[in-house]
Nucleic acid binder design. Sequence first.
DNA 1: CGACCGCTTGAGTCCCATCAAAGACTGTGG
DNA 2: CCACAGTCTTTGATGGGACTCAAGCGGTCG
Lengths: 248, 248
Amino acid sequence: MSHDDVYPASLQCGDCPIRHRAVCARCEANELDELESVKYYRSFEAGQTVIWSGDKMDFVASVVSGIATLTQTLEDGRTQMVGLLLPSDFVGRPGRDRAAYNITATTDILMCCFRRKPFEELMERTPHIAQRLLQMTLDELDAAREWMLLLGRKTAREKIASLLSIVARRDASIRHRRTDNRLTFDLPLTREAMADYLGLTLETVSRQISALKRDGVIELEGKRHVTVPDMERLMIEAGDDSDGGLIV
Amino acid sequence: MSHDDVYPASLQCGDCPIRHRAVCARCEANELDELESVKYYRSFEAGQTVIWSGDKMDFVASVVSGIATLTQTLEDGRTQMVGLLLPSDFVGRPGRDRAAYNITATTDILMCCFRRKPFEELMERTPHIAQRLLQMTLDELDAAREWMLLLGRKTAREKIASLLSIVARRDASIRHRRTDNRLTFDLPLTREAMADYLGLTLETVSRQISALKRDGVIELEGKRHVTVPDMERLMIEAGDDSDGGLIV
DNA sequence: CGACCGCTTGAGTCCCATCAAAGACTGTGG
DNA sequence: CCACAGTCTTTGATGGGACTCAAGCGGTCG
């Protein structure tokens, strides 16, 4: 166990990189002050477990930087990822004192934590927080439902293509590199994590990636660096609605 | 097309069967009055489509009675159910003017509709509504994630057992018939709807139900009337965490 | 009665999981 | 420097679980 205690000396909410996307997005100056008084930072290294399902959890948090995963498991070890936590995503549930899922850091991550009780009280008094949280939860619900369609009805090849196109689009929307329809990005996940996300085995993931490469749908440089020569082609492989889903 | 216009003469919120569970659960008398002024009822017959994905939707609603389904489809017709709407469940999304899913009435249903714009304005002013909606949305998100585990990792037999145990428990919690661990209920879904829910084909659903019957896990009377002689046994077949999920 | 719908059951096929082995890369220690 | 272990990944061989295609049953409705 090395240091999961590299807390930033102090980060002002005003300077926070997720200030305008996280649960605090709508807060005004005085509301931020209140949040600031109950917040603290925690960081975790890639591979570390943030919390185990069922564990006591007396904080809620925002992911400031890095990537984490939300997973559920069956007794015999079968694992399904049920969410991917990206910067600005919210962790935990007000009113619930135990974690419902395993949270694992995929990369090094920094989280902005709020003690749960004070946060809940603050939420009662501050509609801006509840409103934003509602929005974010509705978005997550939509994402979960899109994923249900993928898990229930798509083939392995379509699943891989879907994941790649989602990562590609997210990446393109962050760095505004809209060079034609050619896109390049890094996969933030191992083959195993992809398998857990897609409801496949890692062997099948590997095979289907190889197949997409062989068929010219994607190009690979190393294991993780992907370029998509023709985004439209990839979308077709994903089997989604034609146009390409405007929803983030 | 027969009459989908059997509106109840008038139903006072105070007498509403879902008064204390729906989105209005936390509202006080004066808030109810406001809701009452923008509400109207619509009913649909079993089998009717309430709305198509992508259609304009200028209302949100609560299911008062009956059952409806939320489904998503791929271009080639593959269908996945992404939600089951039971009495008190909320339909639509504030701030979104088009339906994201197909909604179909499984039984005759009655919906309490609110014009969207006034509802949104009311929500801004009425934290009680937003708070309740947040709770309900978080519950739905949990349900969706549990379903992701089922879709991604469970076998056909486990999927069927899971569905049966969910319906059984819900039914038992409504009518307080806790006779030992023997339970009896009706399936509200056709084999095809079950298949769409579980990410299976209707043939596989039928075969697995037959198998569970043959193995004595369930007993069948007709096609829809199920009795579970030993609830614990069913839970084991479902592959879930041992104890049996206290979460409603 | 015949048509239709929901459901069951059978036969054959295929996609993906499983089991197994080996390649690519990294870091560690002799 | 290289040997070695460990992790991540690829690829092959095999089998099985669920899908597909197809036929038939029982009930309801026109």
